[in-house]
């Protein structure tokens, strides 16, 4: 129990260290840590135990430890299902200018793509599209909704 707590706390510290913007944001709920969504509400699964999406801090495209773990699971699943191609859909929250957010969504999806490629998935199997802030998954105007919307979602293309 105590060990668990220490582990959790140290993860928080790691998150805070990883994310530049973490110091500016407060923990809004137990579903956000260091400005990144950590809940499960919106997640769908590509296969059992393979979450379809990763989340980002405001204005960032850096992959968190949890995101990398999700993407490693996706890579393993893609290796097993070598005929499946995917589209990575990059998104931003509504608190930014439209054109910049289009570029930011593209950058986020590519961060996920690069990681999948380092785990052996061919770039030919992955395409990328950015929706900027045009397709939020949560329509609320609050920090929790925004954290769910800052995402890259891996979608089967065939």
């Amino acid at each position: 129990m105590i060990f668990n707590k220490i582990l959790k706390n140290s993860l928080v510290v790691i998150f805070a260290g990883l994310l530049l913007s973490a110091c500016a944001t407060k923990k809004v709920s137990n579903q956000i840590q260091g400005d990144v969504y950590t809940g499960k509400d919106t997640i769908e699964y590509l296969a059992s135990g393979v979450p379809d999406r990763v989340f980002f801090a405001t204005n960032e495209s850096v992959l968190t430890t949890a995101s990398r773990e999700t993407l490693r699971k996706q890579a393993a699943w893609l290796r097993k299902n070598s005929k499946i191609n995917v589209v990575l859909e990059g998104h931003a929250d509504e608190r930014g200018t439209r054109e910049y957010n289009l570029a930011l969504g593209e950058r986020r999806a590519n961060a996920a793509k690069d990681y999948l490629m380092t785990y052996g998935i061919s770039g030919n199997r992955i395409s990328v599209i950015s929706y900027g802030k045009e397709r939020p998954v949560d329509s609320g105007s609050n920090p929790l909704a925004w954290s769910k919307n800052r995402r890259s979602v891996t979608v089967k293309a065939n």
């Binding site: 495209s61 289009l102 570029a103 593209e106 950058r107 590519n110 961060a111």
Partner: peptide, 9 residues
């Protein structure tokens, strides 16, 4: 215009 490729616009 902007053109985005490999995470760079």
């Amino acid at each position: 215009m902007s053109f985005a490729k490999d995470g760079n616009s």
